[in-house]
């Protein structure tokens, strides 16, 4: 095509796709962009629903309030960190082991596999409810088992020392299947001949798994862990809300729960917005860091 003769459609023609896309775009913008902008507004002003007289720009005060004046933010930060690192580690190891288990052929595999995926298909609220009942100190199945061992009326979720463990168990139960699914898909996609070559080279099954399969899975592992971490970071809200609502005290109050409680229990909207935005920043950083790791530093 010569430079002079390039055909350009008139403006109204070029804008036409936008016109057809506008309903979708409007909806998307109203549920993503607007809340973001509004939360920026909330974070930079004093917005306390129980005291509507207070208002005006107060970013520095808000930041000081949340990050410096009380330890609550950092307590929740630590809780979130512990929760995310623990559940993702456990889910990764379990998911990987299960994936390897299902990678091999055995009779009945295709029959039992769907059962392992079921927890993932449940709504988090349902999962939270199930586990709250299971952990209930009076009639819960787990308390029943503890009773049989001589521990009476122990409610895991009501004790500050074990409440987070209960949350972790529920999360692992629900989200290990997701890891399993991603890991298994990754394993199945690998070529098998390097494993056979390693077999001939003299490697045991474990050595093949560790030295050949695992390194070949690296991209999948990174992506799976990344997705799960981001998800665990901001999505472990519903389950906790149902199971403990952040309690007892604040021991299970993650950042997500804190954001919610600040805004909708104490009606300190600006605090909730700052906590939520801090989570956004952390998630963006996590994505960047792991994204770079994904490109892969060279070994040797």
């Amino acid at each position: 095509m010569s430079g002079e003769q390039v055909y350009r459609a008139p403006l109204h023609r070029r804008l036409r796709p936008l016109y057809f896309l506008s309903p979708t775009l409007l909806i998307l913008l109203s549920v993503t962009l607007f809340p973001l902008i509004y939360s920026l507004y909330l974070a930079t002003h004093t917005v306390i629903l129980t005291n509507p007289m207070l208002s005006g720009w107060s970013l520095q005060d808000n930041l000081r309030e949340v990050f410096l004046e009380s330890p609550e933010y950092w307590e929740s930060f630590a809780t979130t960190l512990i929760l995310v690192v623990t559940v993702v580690s456990i889910e990764f190891v379990l998911g990987l082991m299960l994936a390897y288990f299902f990678y091999n052929n055995f009779t009945g595999r295709d029959f039992i596999f769907p059962f392992f995926l079921m927890p993932m298909m449940l709504t988090p609220v349902v999962v939270g409810t199930i586990w709250r009942f299971l952990f209930n100190g009076e009639f819960g199945l787990i308390a029943g088992l503890l009773k049989a061992m001589g521990v009476v009326n122990y409610s895991i979720l009501n004790e500050p020392s074990t409440a987070l463990v209960g949350i972790i168990i529920a999360d692992v139960w629900q989200w290990t299947p997701f890891m399993l699914l991603l890991m298994l898909a990754g394993m199945r996609a690998l070529p098998t001949s390097p494993f056979e070559a390693a077999q001939v080279d003299g490697a045991s099954r474990f050595q093949i798994f560790r030295d050949i399969m695992l390194p070949m899975m690296k991209p999948v592992i990174v992506i799976a862990v990344l997705i799960r971490m981001i998800d665990a970071f901001n999505r472990t809200f519903d389950t906790i809300y149902i199971m403990t609502n952040g309690g007892p005290g604040r021991v299970t109050e993650t950042l997500a729960v804190m954001a919610f409680r600040s805004s909708f229990e104490y009606f300190f909207m600006h605090q909730g917005a700052i906590v939520a935005l801090s989570m956004l920043v952390i998630i963006i950083i996590m994505t960047k860091v792991l994204g770079r790791f994904m490109a892969g530093p060279r070994e040797d």
Binding site: P191, S193, P194, E196, A197, A198, Q199, V200, D201, G202, A203, S204, D211, I212, P215, M216, K218, E299, D300
Partner: peptide, 25 residues
């Protein structure tokens, strides 16, 4: 016996090299 105990070596059609290892490794 397992392949590793047979004292054989095999060259595959698609070479089956270990993709993440250097030639040396």
């Amino acid at each position: 016996l397992e392949p590793k105990d047979r004292d054989i070596a095999m060259v595959f059609q698609n070479y089956a090299l270990y993709p993440h290892k250097s030639v040396f490794e």
